[in-house]
Nucleic acid binder design. Structure first.
Lengths: 251, 251
DNA sequence: TCTTGAGTAAATGTATACTAAAATATTCAA
DNA sequence: TTGAATATTTTAGTATACATTTACTCAAGA
């Protein structure tokens, strides 16, 4: 995208969705958005179609656009795609990684150690430390995607991440679920660190099969955790779609 | 898509691209297309944007749309994605396959045996037999994707296949390359059959790891063959993009 | 002859008016 | 009061006019 107004609309709507200003299911009316952004309906339509491709918006012909609501089936499918792509990417990274790639991964790991330790010792959760930890976690994963030397794959993985973020991110979670998520993350922090280490060792050693396997386990465990969390959170956006049959019991 | 006119335009352009009427690199002018199809520019623009998502068209802002030309780097990336997704899908299929799925795979294999044998015996290539063989090959792979019970993954694999078909399909090949492709395919037919058999055995036995591995090898060998063929074919559409530096030698 | 630059043509991006379909409100009868 | 039929409103799809940018042509000068 580089069409000034379409770009404007795209970035505006995208930011607001990722921000949680428009919650999953909320309808996105082109005219309202065009007034809000200050462009005509045409670039807004373009932006919504692009966002549909990104998986953040769903468009039903003649009925308009709304923020994508992911049901359990789709969530599972997205997760399976992530396992397939991220583990394969780790395998490629073990073959194609440069010294710079390895240095970036090592930097992230070195940075995470003290941060993780600090959280384990402290009684209270420190948001700054947590966000720093998340940043380094992302850095580690991005470094691997970069090392795999496959832009298409990197882009697709990023796309899937963003969809998951919209449905399982802060915006889509209740307050209770959010604190519980923090607790679980805290408990599993040590195992995450160990998994990162073994992924890094395999990539560093150039052992493609081992890297692939280690990453597969890692992503799978992350997914298992978030699925468990979301089920408990009774998140509206993750609710299974009820069949016509089941809807008969609404009395 | 279900907007009558956008749909009309989308199907029209898509068919012509897959048909080879518009070759890779050909520019697609919205006004020409709108006259040809008999709708206004708006639905044509929608269709072109959708086709860009499909990976069949590339749009450069202000410069218009053209049929996608895939360079060697992108081709490699698409192939790597296919290996990642199709092998993972085979692994899932080994877990989730139903009796109907297995029956469909077995049907395809049973149908391929005599067809393959007939081609090996006959001196002359029989187009009808070849297209029947391709149909059963597709049936086998589709059955596996279906058995994996992941629509998102199935759709993405199908998308990647179509892109490969446009750049490496009959339309994108010279006559010489086409006959050579046939010869190579003939030589490798036996090994393809053996690979199919071992994939089927693993899925049937519910051995996820084995199915994954067998499919990975199978796709990789298919890709290796087509890469070799295309390199030899000196296909314009697969040509590496020349740098500014290199363009200085055009005298 | 080659390069440079103004001018022109062509095609895309954008805004808007029009059309059609879906959702909502209203009316009237049972 | 309820329910169905109808009218109104809203909103998306489409066509088209206008604005903007790019590419191309052709002439003038080095």
């Amino acid at each position: 995208m580089k069409n000034v107004n379409s770009d404007l609309a795209y970035n505006h709507i995208r930011r607001r969705i990722l921000n949680g200003d428009y919650l999953p299911g909320a309808s996105l009316i082109t005219e309202e958005l065009s007034k809000e952004i200050g462009v005509s309906r045409t670039p807004v339509r373009d932006a919504l179609r692009q966002l549909e491709v990104d998986g953040l918006v769903s468009i039903r012909p003649r009925l308009g656009a709304s923020v994508k609501q992911v049901n359990l089936k789709e969530f599972r499918e997205i997760c399976e795609m992530r396992v397939a792509l991220e583990s394969h990417a780790a395998g490629l990274a073990a073959i194609s990684r440069s010294q710079e790639d390895l240095a970036e991964m090592e930097y992230a790991l070195q940075a995470m150690h003290p941060l993780s330790a600090k959280l384990r010792e402290a009684d209270r959760e420190d948001d700054d430390v947590i966000s720093a930890l998340i940043r380094e976690d992302v850095r580690f994963h991005v470094a691997i995607m970069t090392a795999a030397k496959n832009d298409l794959m990197k882009k697709e993985i990023h796309r899937l991440h963003l969809i998951n973020r919209v449905v399982s991110g802060p915006a889509a979670m209740s307050q209770g679920a959010r604190t519980e998520a923090k607790a679980t993350m805290d408990a599993n922090r040590a195992s995450v660190m160990a998994e990162h280490e073994s992924i890094f060792r395999a990539i560093s050693a150039g052992d493609s099969a081992a890297a692939k396997h280690a990453m597969g386990e890692h992503i799978q465990s992350i997914i298992d955790k978030s699925v468990r969390l979301m089920s408990r959170a009774e998140s509206r956006v993750l609710a299974r779609e009820l069949s016509q049959e089941e809807m008969l019991y609404t009395i």
